[in-house]
Simulated scan of single mutants.
Amino acid sequence: MNIDTLYVRTEKGQNALTDRYVKLPHSLMRALIIVDGQRNVGELHTMAPLYDDLDESLETLFTEGFIEITQPQRERPKAMAENADGTPHEAPKQNTDAPSHKNVKWRLISMLQVELGSKSDASIKAAAEKMIHSISSLPEEYLALSAAWKKCVKVTKITIDVELAETIRRQGEELLAQLQE
């Protein structure tokens, strides 16, 4: 799969996210959630490194009409730097092999959307939305996100399911550890 491909949800894809009667497999639903028309496939992989089947899910969503290929809204400007004499030159590329410290917050939110947003119980969805809202307002800092994440795990454990809370705790800790590297 080309990492520069940019997908956007179709009307069918949007409906799948909002219509509780549309039943997509878990792997397809979590891929559909992160497709936003702004991030290309490479960026989606960076955002969701735990999704081993992301390429296959995107292909299936595309084939079944839930997403389509789109063009970027605008070309991203090349990073420019200046030589000592003030003349511009292209800045060196960043090492993309290094772990991504950006988007941990959004990857935590995506995980909550996938794990809790797929539940049919309205109270669970409401709890998930509150958790997502609290995390989305925080800075991308370990202490703030870690404290909020612990609250999410606690609420999940008390009100929803102990096993699910453990899954969320473990996956969240893996993501949060990236902010400490």
Score class of each variant (00 low, 15 high):
Gly117Val: 04
Cys152Glu: 03
Glu163Leu: 14
Asn2Cys: 03
Ala147Lys: 15
Thr46His: 05
Gln38Trp: 02
Arg169Gly: 00
Leu112Asp: 00
Gln73Gly: 14
Ala81Ser: 12
Leu17Asn: 01
Leu108Pro: 02
Thr10Ile: 12
Gln94Pro: 10
Met47Cys: 12
Gln178Ala: 12
Ile168Glu: 01
Pro88Asn: 04
Leu108Cys: 04
Asp161Ala: 10
Arg74Ile: 07
Ile34Arg: 05
Leu61Val: 13
Thr96Ile: 11
Ile124His: 11
Ala165Arg: 06
Arg30Pro: 04
Asn2Gln: 14
Pro77Glu: 08
Thr96Ala: 12
Leu138Asp: 01
Lys130Leu: 11
Glu115Met: 13
Lys125Gly: 01
Pro49Lys: 03
His26Pro: 02
Leu176Pro: 03
Lys154Ile: 13
Met80Ser: 05
Val104Phe: 10
Asn15Trp: 01
Gln171Gly: 04
Arg170Ala: 04
Leu176Lys: 10
Glu75Ser: 07
Leu44Val: 09
Ile34Asn: 06
Phe62Ala: 14
Gln38Ala: 13
Thr63Glu: 00
Cys152Leu: 08
Leu32Glu: 01
Gly86Tyr: 00
Leu143Ser: 06
Val41Ser: 05
Glu140Ala: 11
Pro139Val: 12
Val155Gln: 09
Val104Glu: 01
Leu143His: 05
Glu129Asn: 09
Lys12Pro: 10
Val162Tyr: 03
Glu43Ile: 07
Thr167His: 05
Ala122Cys: 04
Gln178His: 08
Ile168Tyr: 02
Glu115Tyr: 14
Pro49Trp: 00
Ala84Lys: 03
Gly117Cys: 08
Arg20Thr: 13
Ile160Pro: 03
Glu174Met: 14
Lys12His: 08
Ala84Pro: 08
Ile3Lys: 13
Ala128Tyr: 04
Thr96Phe: 00
Tyr142Thr: 05
Pro139Thr: 12
Met131Lys: 09
Ser146Met: 07
Ile160Val: 08
Leu17Pro: 02
Met47Gly: 14
Gln180Arg: 09
Met47Glu: 06
Thr60Cys: 13
Pro77Phe: 08
Ile160Met: 03
Thr18Val: 12
Val114Cys: 13
Glu174Lys: 15
Lys151Ala: 05
Pro77Gln: 12
Arg30Tyr: 00
